[in-house]
Structure formats: structure tokens, C-alpha cells
Design a protein around this nucleic acid. Structure first.
Lengths: 348, 348
DNA sequence: TTTAGCACTCAGGAAGCCAGAGTGCTAAAA
DNA sequence: TTTTAGCACTCTGGCTTCCTGAGTGCTAAA
């Protein structure tokens, strides 16, 4: 059930014209666009065939055709040519990579913002790390008599800290002792293992010591929890309104709400592949069934990966957008590996 | 040029009806609403007067009247009654305060999200701290031979850290030395003073030592810069579309873009007052001239304050929204002061 | 000063009309 | 068998027109 060469050229013409103009494409337009040297009547027959096979759709009888999700899928799989980024585009992306090299803390969030700007679509960003993390070490720093800072370092060199104020006083040696206790008892444990261990320790420790331990270990648990939670960041939601398919509020509103919702799930769990495109109904989320998602991953160092993607109409310039995304992602990976954005201390 | 009592009652009736129904209010409706026992003709005369004085406006000849910004201003200043939160409302807010007590790191951001949910308007949140911050102390922790963590603590007990990897090795004693150098030379300085001091030190230090110092001091500078930058967080932008005045894209789009823009300035510098309302043209930002802003501040401890606010149509239920906001802000202040959200380690 | 009455205005919805684009079908041509 | 030209048909979207109802301002009487 493969398509003839001519049918493919016609399909491609329809899609590319539709991507550019956002208007149903008629047989005459295809005849010109595809340069096939056949009349529009021939094209009509072919298009009617393509519609029957499910690659094209007709909004209504007397409009032209638009591509169906199946049509887009064939297009991105076989027909689409690699988009060549212009010099301006690469420059823009390079520039975007340069700014904010400072904000080491927020690579992921920043990646989302930058991609939103770069593509003019709403973007999302999240971290794709391992399921389970453990705490590697604790450090405690005395600030005043009655306050100290706990520094927690987990796998992949993520470092977090928190200031604790106490009702009573604390000496440097007490703090050192506490540190040893924490480092011997609570390192190398996953989130789930922390609480049982805490229970165990509670039995043979003084009440004061235990309270301090609990305080710090709970903080460690928070850090792990936070890391495993994988919050999704979004940026540039308003970009959606720029595109004609979301001009009507009924279309735009549900998707915007979906994107605004802090813990939406744009994709199933396997976000492993380097670049990926999900078209219309291929998306799991109901709100995305009429839209497409293009995404790319980058390397955060130490085995952690970041994922950035954009959401847009199924009529998206897949070639261009995915070229930009993967160029950006590659650039970011390179930058991080070069130490431009030193490892450790990631936001997720 | 004060208004008669009856005029005020009429103005109030117009505003409250308009807040509720989002439709221009006619003389007959006012007659019923305000219970003045006068005919609609009388009201008409009064309303025509109010329009002349600038408190009301007419979208077109044969529609009713709507309040002008000046009318709203009078309303919030004199006419508005305190809105009494229902039990359900206070419960909802209390609940909102309970969740995420964990996320100490992100009080501000979280405050914005919660307020957006609570009010159904887009919300923004930022920190209102002092202009200039200084670094209080540095701590350095050896991780491996060739890596260490720098912990920087600034005024108001904000603590940040970063992992550094080196090309060469480093001993514990070298690190200690470095720490002393940093703490004697670079504490108590503002952002602007750091670089000159760095220059000064560069002259009488070995090349290796200087490179390390530079690394850590630059990180300190980043932290200060970040703290003084006052990034504005936004949440719930999509809420805007729920309200009838933003049903048309031309109205919604500019405001949404404005809110999406990461570094918008919702207000002038003096965001000191506890609760505040800015109506229509009172806003400085062009994009807000047709909208209103209601905000409240809360205490982050240690002299830092947070600001949360919402953006909505001028036809906003000022009484209700500002009641909710200030209840929330008070709750948050209380919670933080109680240690529910321990001080220090704030995101901003 | 208030009220009733009345003529006037205007937005916005419903209905009708038309042009233009695009189709499918048929019959002739290649 | 495939392609093409021709033609009748369909349907959207934009345009006008019409009409209703809500609301007004003005005037003259209470």
C-alpha cells in the first residue's frame, strides 16, 4: 500500500503549501506548486485518492484539502527534507546560548524560555534523570550560635542547602559530631529508605541529637523528592495566540490552560530519543490531540539529560522547528560539556 | 466638588452591577438595584451628571453606562464595603497555605501560583528587598581532589552554592587558606565593589591563588546580581481568557504577551504599601492601561518582603480580590514567622 | 425637583444575497 | 488506460439590509 511517486509529490506539495499559508490547498495550487506538468484535473483525481487513503482531509466540500495527521506522519518520516538553518538563525541561536551563562541554577527553565523565543511557540522543559537518587554527603556549617547551614549533595553532584535556626545553642564540635552521624548513617540511601533508617536511629540516640538529625534528614528527603518530581517548566504560552489555528478562543483556551497547569505531562515516560515529533492524536494528553509536539534532548552532564520541546498546531514547520531545536540542544550539550555551564547545582 | 449622597449610591449601584454582570448598566436597572424609590428618569438625570463629571462612560449612545477609572477610584476609596470572606474562602486559602510548605526554596514563585488559583486571575510575584546586598561569608567544601563546593551567604541569610571542578588538584589546607582570603577580603562588599577589590588583590597574589579567588568571587557576584535583579514570576496567565473583557484576541494578546515577558515591570518602584490597587491608566505600563492590578505584600523574614498581585479587567471585584489577597498575604507572613517556612534560603 | 411620555439612536442578531474557489463527473483526446 | 477540458454543483465568507430592543435625552406636566 505504498504510494506512487507522484502521489507523494502531491502530498508533499499540499503539506508544504499548507504549512506556509495555513489555508486549504486546491488542485490548481498544487499543480503550480509541485511542477508536475499535469493538469489540475489529474491532481484532483490523485488528491481524491489520497483522501480516501487517509492522508488528506476536506474541511468542507468546496474548500481545498488539508493534511491529516497520517499525512503529516508520512511527511516527517519520508518526504520532509532537512531544513538548512540560515546563518542568521544559527547566529541567533548561538547568541541565545551565550546569554545567561551565569544562571547555572536554572539551565532547564532558561532552556525553555530561550526555545520559546527561538521558535515562537510555547515551550516546555524538564529534566530526564534516573528514577532514584541518593544522598552522597552532608556538610554542616555553623553560622551563629543558634543557626547552621546544611549542605546536601546527591548523585550527579546536585547540591542544595538550607539554613536552620535552633531554639538552643550549638557548638562547633557538636555540629561535627552531627555531621559524622549523618554521613555514616544516611548516605547512599534512596528517598524511601530514609524514613526507616531514621526510625532505627531514633532508638539509640539522645532526644536532642535525634531532633537535629531528623531536621537535616528531612531536608535531604525534600531535596530527593524535589529532584525526582520532575516539574515541567513552561514559557511563552502567549506565543500560541500568534498562530491562526488558535485565533478562536475555543481552540486556544483549553490548550493554554493545559500548558499553564504546572504539572501537565506532555509525553509518555519514554522521552529517550534525541529528537522526536508527536503529531496530533499521537499525543497522549487529550488537550494535545489537535496539536503537535516537537522536542529535543540535551546532556546536562553526569548522566542527567534535559528535555526541551515546543507545542504548536499540527500545521507546524516540522523541518524548521526540529532543526532549530536540535541545533540548540546540541549547542547546549556542547556548552555544558565545555564547562560553560559547569555541572552540578542543576535546578532539577 | 463632592458628590451628593444619592449620586454616590447610584455610582455604587452602577459599579457593583457592572462588576457582577459585565454589561453596561441602564437607568432602570440602577433604579431597581439601588432601591432609591425614584423613577428611572431621575436616575437618568443623575447618571448624565455623573458622566459629565467623569465617573461614568457610555460605550455608545444607546447602551447603559459603565464606570470610568475615575469612578472605580472613588469606589475603592470611599464607597466600597469590606468584603467578608466566606468560611469556604478562608478554608481554601488556609489549605493553599498548607500545601508545599516543603518548597522553602520557592516561596515567591509558589505564592504567585497559589494566588492565581485563588483569584482566577493571572498573578505575579516578586521580592521587594533592599537595593544593595553584600556577601557575609564564604564557605568552601572539598568534594574530591579536584572539585569543591563554594557556599555563599549574603545579607538576609540567603545562601547559595556552586560546585567547582578544577584542572589541577587541591588540598584541604589550600582550600582553607583560600577561604580565609575570601572571607577577609571580600565580605561586606556590594556588587559594585567586588571587581575593584578583585583587581587590587590580583597584584599581590600568586597566579594560581588569584584564579581560584576570581572563580569564587565571580560566583558571589552572580549571586548578588541575581538577588538584586528581582525577577518577576507569573502564573495562571491563561486565566485571563476566562473573563469576558479578554474574549477578543486583540484585547487578550497584548496583555498576555506583556505578562509572558519575563522581565516586565508591573509597577513603579515604590511597592511599599501593604495593599494596593492600581486602576486602568494609573498603571505605568502601557499594556496595563486598560486593566487593573491588585496586590499585597508579605514578610519574608529578615527584613525582606514579598509582593504578590493579580492582573485583571478594570471591572474587577476589588473588594473580594483584595480581601483574598491580603488574607493570603497575612497568612503567609504568619506562617513564615512561625517557622512553617523557615527563613533564609529564599529564592530571591 | 421629580416624573411620565415620546422620539431618537444604535448595537447586534437574523436573513438574504452573491462571488469565488474548489470539487466531482463526464466525455473527448492522447 | 490515462489525462485533460468543460461544466454543473456546492459551500464558505463577506456583504448588505433589516429589525428589534434597550437605553437615552428632552419636554412638559405634576
Amino acid at each position: 500500500m505504498d504510494l506512487t511517486d507522484r502521489k507523494k509529490r502531491i502530498l508533499r506539495a499540499v503539506i508544504e503549501s499548507y504549512i506556509q499559508n495555513a489555508e486549504p490547498v486546491g488542485s490548481k495550487a498544487v499543480a503550480e506548486w509541485a511542477r508536475l506538468n499535469v493538469s489540475s484535473a489529474t491532481i484532483r483525481n490523485e488528491m481524491s485518492d489520497l483522501e480516501e487513503k487517509g492522508y488528506l482531509e476536506q474541511p468542507h466540500t468546496s474548500a481545498g484539502r488539508i493534511p491529516s495527521p497520517k499525512g503529516y506522519r508520512l511527511y516527517v518520516n519520508e518526504l520532509m527534507e532537512d531544513y538548512k538553518l540560515s546563518i542568521q538563525e544559527t547566529q541567533r541561536i548561538n547568541q541565545a546560548l551565550h546569554i545567561r551563562v551565569k544562571a547555572l541554577d536554572r539551565v532547564i527553565d532558561e532552556a525553555g524560555r530561550v526555545v520559546a523565543k527561538l521558535t515562537q511557540y510555547p515551550a516546555f522543559a524538564l529534566a530526564a534523570g534516573p528514577e532514584k537518587m541518593t544522598i552522597r554527603r552532608f556538610d554542616l556549617l555553623l553560622v551563629e550560635q543558634s543557626a547552621f547551614i546544611a549542605v546536601v549533595m546527591t548523585d550527579f553532584n546536585v547540591v542544595r542547602n538550607k539554613l536552620f535556626r535552633l531554639s538552643g545553642d550549638l557548638s562547633e564540635s557538636q555540629l561535627q559530631m552531627l555531621g559524622t552521624l549523618l554521613n555514616t548513617g544516611f548516605t547512599g540511601l534512596t528517598l524511601a529508605q530514609l524514613t526507616p533508617e531514621l526510625d532505627r536511629v531514633s532508638r539509640h540516640a539522645t532526644r536532642e541529637a535525634y531532633e537535629l538529625i531528623e531536621l537535616v534528614v528531612n531536608f535531604g528527603a525534600e531535596v530527593l523528592d524535589d529532584l525526582e518530581k520532575r516539574q515541567v517548566h513552561t514559557a511563552g504560552i502567549a506565543n500560541l495566540l500568534e498562530h491562526p489555528e488558535y485565533q478562536s478562543l475555543e481552540k486556544a483556551q483549553p490548550l493554554m490552560s493545559f500548558l499553564s497547569d504546572e504539572d501537565f505531562k506532555p509525553l509518555p515516560n519514554d522521552c529517550a530519543r534525541a529528537t522526536d515529533i508527536l503529531i496530533g492524536p499521537e499525543n497522549v494528553a487529550e488537550a494535545l490531540k489537535d496539536s503537535s509536539v516537537v522536542m529535543a534532548t540535551y546532556d546536562l552532564g553526569d548522566g542527567m539529560r534535559g528535555l526541551v520541546g515546543v507545542v504548536g498546531p499540527t500545521r507546524m514547520d516540522y523541518a524548521k522547528i526540529s532543526a532549530r531545536l536540535s541545533y540548540f540542544a546540541k549547542g547546549l550539550t556542547w556548552l555544558i560539556s565545555q564547562g560553560g555551564l559547569p555541572p552540578g547545582n542543576k535546578d532539577q
